[in-house]
Design a protein around this nucleic acid. Structure first.
Lengths: 344, 344
DNA sequence: TTGTAAGCGTTATCAC
DNA sequence: GTGATAACGCTTACAA
C-alpha cells in the first residue's frame, strides 16, 4: 500500500506487480481472456490485486466511457405498497445487466422532482424511469435529457410521446364494473384517486363507460368519492358514502382504499359481501389475507418494473422505444362480492 | 454547442462565454458568492450555462474530490412492508444533505450481497447502510471497506463491533408477553421468525424471559413456531398451532405473520379476541385498518432510517460511531387482545 | 480579476 | 507482450 495516497489505485497494483498500469488494465478488461499476455505476468498482477484488496474505480471508468451503468428510478413514495414490487422488477433486471438503481421519492412535489432529476443528470445516469406522478411534473426537462443523452421511460401513464409501459386502466375498471353489474348490482359507488392522477382518471372513466353501456343511470357525483390511494381516505370515503343513498357495492381505485372500506363497513355493522360487495385494484399481497378475501384487479406490477427496465436497455442499444409496452390486467375473483341482498 | 463532442461540458460554456474554464468553475463553485469577480463576467457565464442547458458532471467532480455523495442501502427485500418507511427515513435525510441512495435488494442471498457490496465500493460510495440480513452476510468485507474509507452502519442488529442503530427487541417482546400475562393468559403461543435472524432470536428470547420471570411453565417447542416473516407463514404456523394444545393467545414476531394468523383463526371459526388474542410486532400501517385492530409493538422504522443516515453523516465528519444508537419501542394496545375466555 | 496547468483513476492508441 | 501517453470533465493552486 502506498504511503500518502488515500486509497489503492491501479498505480499501486502496477507498482506491486512490477508492471505498467496498462498491463493491469488489460487484466481487468472484460475481454481479458482474449488478450494475449504471458501467464506469469497475469498471475503477478492478479496476485497484487488480491494482496492489496484493489477495486477498480468505476467513476474514472465511467468518465472515460461516457456511461455510468446507473439509472434513476423516480416515484412518488416507496411507502405506498403499490411500488415495492415495481422497484424489485426494475432492480432485478437492472442488476442482472450490471446496472445500479438510484431511488428517488418525490412525494409528487414538483420541487423535489425537479431537484432529483437535476441530480440524476449531473451524475450522468444512463437512463431514468419515472413511475406514477402527475402529468405535469417534468417541467421542461426534455431538453436537458436530450443534451445529456439520458433515456427516459415512463410507467403507468399514457397519451405521452415518451417511451412507456402502460396498463389499460379504463378496460380494467370496465371489466370490474361489468362483473358487479352481472351479479345484479345497480347502485354501485366508486372510490377514486386524486384527479390529477391520470391513472385515477382512467379508472373512473372505465367504470362510467360500463355503467353507460349497460344503461344504468350514472347516479352522479353522489356515487363517487375522491380519495388519495391510502387506507384512511378509503375509510373516510366509505363512511361518507354511507351517509348518502344506499349502495350495494363499492368499487375502489386501489386495494389500500378497499381495505379502508372494509374497516368502515365493519365499523358501521355492515358485512362484506352480505350487505355490501367490495372490489379493489392492484392485488397487493394483503388482498388474499384479509377476510373475506378481496376481489380485485391484478396489476402485474413486478413485471411492469421488469418491462420498464428492459425497455430502457433496448433504448441503450439504439431502440427508439416508440412502441408503448401494454401490460394486461386480470380480474381476480375472491370472496368480497355477492349478488345484492334481496330488496337491496 | 460543439460539433464533435457528445454532450456539453465546461469547455463549451467557457467558449460560449469567452472565458476560461476556471472562470466557469468559479461561478459554479459552492462558495461562488464569496469569490470576487466582475459582475459582467459572471453574467456572461450564467447566460451561457442557461443557453446551453449545461449541467456540471458530478463524476468528474467526485473523482477529483474523492467523494461521490452517494451511499448504498442494502436490505433483504423492499417488498417486505417493514422496509419502505426505513428507506424513506434514509432517503429523506440523505437528500436533505445532498446525498443520493443506491438501493440493493439482497434477498438475504450471500452471492447477491457480495456482488452489491462490490459494486458499491467500485462506485466509491461514501458509505453503506445495511439493514436486516442475517449475521454472516458480510464475508470479509471489512478490509475492503477500510481500504476505500467506506463508512458502514448497520440497522437492527446488535452485538457487532460496527456502528449501528438498534432496537431492544428482547425488551419489546418481554413487555408484550407481560401484557398478555397481565390479561390472564397462561397458554401463549409464539410465532417467530427464521432463526438465523438475530432480530427473530431476540424477540423469542424476550418472550421466554417474561414467561420464566412470571413462573409460567414454558410449554416447550410445541408453543413455538418458526415462520419467515410473511403472511403465508403466519397463516400456516397458526394453523399448525391449532392442531396442538389449545392456546388463548398468540404473539407474532411481526405484523405480517399476525395478519396471517388473523386469516387462519377466521378460517378455523375462531374469533379475535373472543377466542384467541393476537399481538403483532412493527405496527405497519395496516395494523390500524384490520378488524379487530391489531395490538402490536411499534418500531420507529422511519426514525431508524433517519438515525442511520444521520450516524453516517456524523461519521463522514469524523465521528467514530462507536456508540450504538438505541431506538425505543412501544406497545400499542388496540383491539386484538382480551382476557382469556372462562375455562379457556 | 482571470488564465494556465496539474491531477483525480481509468481506458485506449500507439510505439517498442 | 508490454509500456508511454493522451484523453474523459472537472477543481484548485499558482501565475499573470
Amino acid at each position: 500500500m502506498s504511503r500518502n495516497k488515500a486509497t489503492v489505485s491501479i498505480r499501486d497494483v502496477a507498482a506491486a506487480a512490477g508492471v505498467s498500469i496498462a498491463t493491469v488494465s488489460r487484466v481487468l478488461s472484460p475481454a481479458s481472456a482474449e488478450i494475449r499476455m504471458r501467464q506469469e505476468t497475469r498471475d503477478r498482477v492478479v496476485r497484487a490485486i488480491e494482496d492489496l484488496g484493489y477495486r477498480p474505480n468505476d467513476l474514472a471508468r465511467a468518465l472515460l466511457q461516457q456511461r455510468t451503468s446507473a439509472i434513476g428510478l423516480v416515484l412518488p413514495d416507496i411507502s405506498n405498497p403499490y411500488y415495492p414490487p415495481l422497484v424489485r422488477g426494475v432492480e432485478d433486471v437492472a442488476s442482472a445487466h450490471g446496472y445500479r438503481v438510484v431511488l428517488c421519492n418525490t412525494d409528487r412535489e414538483p420541487d423535489k422532482t425537479a431537484a432529483y432529476l437535476d441530480t440524476l443528470v449531473k451524475t450522468r445516469v444512463d437512463g431514468v424511469i419515472v413511475a406514477g406522478g402527475s402529468l405535469a411534473d417534468l417541467p421542461g426537462r426534455e431538453l436537458v435529457f436530450e443534451t445529456y443523452r439520458t433515456k427516459l421511460v415512463m410507467v403507468g401513464r399514457h397519451g405521452l410521446t415518451q417511451p412507456s409501459v402502460q396498463v389499460d386502466n379504463v378496460a380494467a375498471t370496465r371489466v370490474a364494473t361489468e362483473y358487479l353489474l352481472g351479479l345484479g348490482h345497480r347502485r354501485i359507488a366508486f372510490v377514486g384517486g386524486p384527479m390529477d392522477s391520470s391513472t385515477a382518471q382512467d379508472r373512473l372513466i372505465g367504470h362510467q363507460q360500463a355503467l353507460r353501456k349497460a344503461g344504468v343511470p350514472d347516479s352522479g357525483q353522489d356515487a363517487v368519492r375522491v380519495g388519495d390511494f391510502d387506507e384512511r381516505s378509503g375509510y373516510e370515503a366509505t363512511r361518507s358514502l354511507l351517509d348518502g343513498e344506499a349502495r350495494t357495492a363499492v368499487l375502489c381505485a386501489n386495494d389500500r382504499m378497499a381495505l379502508g372500506a372494509y374497516a368502515a363497513l365493519a365499523d358501521a355493522g355492515l358485512s362484506v359481501p352480505g350487505d355490501v360487495s367490495v372490489v379493489g385494484f392492484d392485488d397487493v399481497p394483503m388482498a388474499s389475507f384479509v377476510r373475506p378475501t378481496l376481489t380485485t384487479i391484478a396489476v402485474p406490477t413486478y413485471e411492469m418494473g421488469q418491462a420498464a427496465m428492459r425497455l430502457l436497455l433496448e433504448m441503450f442499444n439504439g431502440a427508439s422505444g416508440n412502441e408503448p409496452v401494454l401490460m394486461p390486467t386480470r380480474l381476480v375473483v375472491r370472496g368480497s362480492c355477492a349478488p345484492p341482498a334481496a330488496g337491496g
